[in-house]
């Protein structure tokens, strides 16, 4: 219930006015990602146990897991979209053709695959917010500064997911959700690689925070 209360909800896209066509789509998406990152960092601080981590571990988790956490939101919003579109924001639905034109073919394929998986299990909001926190907590940090605090953070979230599924007598869904984490990581990696490639190829101007977070992945 704490995660539900602190869930920021989705931002609206600011359609870039400096250009048009596929570059406009890309710039709009990157602006949205940058603002989502700002919200994500504020949100992370409210997850129970996150503030007990050392600053070094907080940074490592965010640098490693930010895209996974953001993509849970995209997959969640895209579950009920018409025409197999990806819903990056309420006012930014992208079809396969639009993604392809913007150089995001790989992002489309990967995120669509992830969306289908969650569609298949009819992901619920409670599960989506917990999964988002779990993805962040589970991201790989090496070396870990304070292993005990990190373990407590992970255990707390795992327990919350188990308690939720137990309360609905659907314990089997805990395993199903955890088993989706490898696909989530793979999807995030492909998305990051696609963006890094685009940044090099098209030399798109990126906002500082997004650039910093992509650099941590490069």
């Amino acid at each position: 219930s704490h995660l539900l209360q602190t869930e920021p909800g989705s931002l609206a896209a600011n359609h870039d006015a400096s250009t048009d066509g596929s570059l406009r789509t890309l710039l709009t998406l990157c602006d949205l990602l940058n603002r989502e990152l700002l919200v994500l960092i504020g949100w992370a601080k409210q997850i129970p146990g996150f503030s007990d981590l050392s600053l070094v571990d907080q940074m490592s988790l965010l640098q490693s897991g930010w895209m996974e956490a953001l993509l849970v939101g995209v997959a969640w919003r895209s579950q009920s979209a018409a025409g197999e579109e990806l819903v990056f924001a309420g006012n930014l639905h992208l079809s396969e053709a639009q993604c392809r034109a913007a150089g995001l073919a790989d992002v489309y394929e990967a995120v669509r695959h992830l969306t289908v998986r969650y569609q298949g299990m009819k992901l619920r909001l409670e599960e989506a917010v917990t999964l988002k926190a779990l993805a962040l907590a589970n991201s790989d940090t090496d070396p870990v500064d304070c292993p005990d605090a990190l373990q407590r953070f992970r255990d707390g979230l795992h327990e919350a997911l188990q308690d939720y599924e137990l309360s609905r007598r659907e314990q089997h869904r805990t395993g199903r959700l955890l088993m989706s984490l490898p696909l989530l990581r793979q999807t995030a990696d492909r998305t990051v690689q696609n963006l890094l490639w685009l940044q090099r190829q098209r030399r798109i101007p990126l906002h500082k925070l997004l650039l910093e977070m992509l650099d941590a992945k490069a």
Binding site: I41, Q63, L209, E212
Partner: peptide, 15 residues
């Protein structure tokens, strides 16, 4: 930390 200045600053802000 120098390289990841913005993230560092955002995490240190209390709000």
């Amino acid at each position: 930390k120098e390289k990841h200045k913005i993230l560092h600053q955002l995490l240190q802000n209390s709000t």
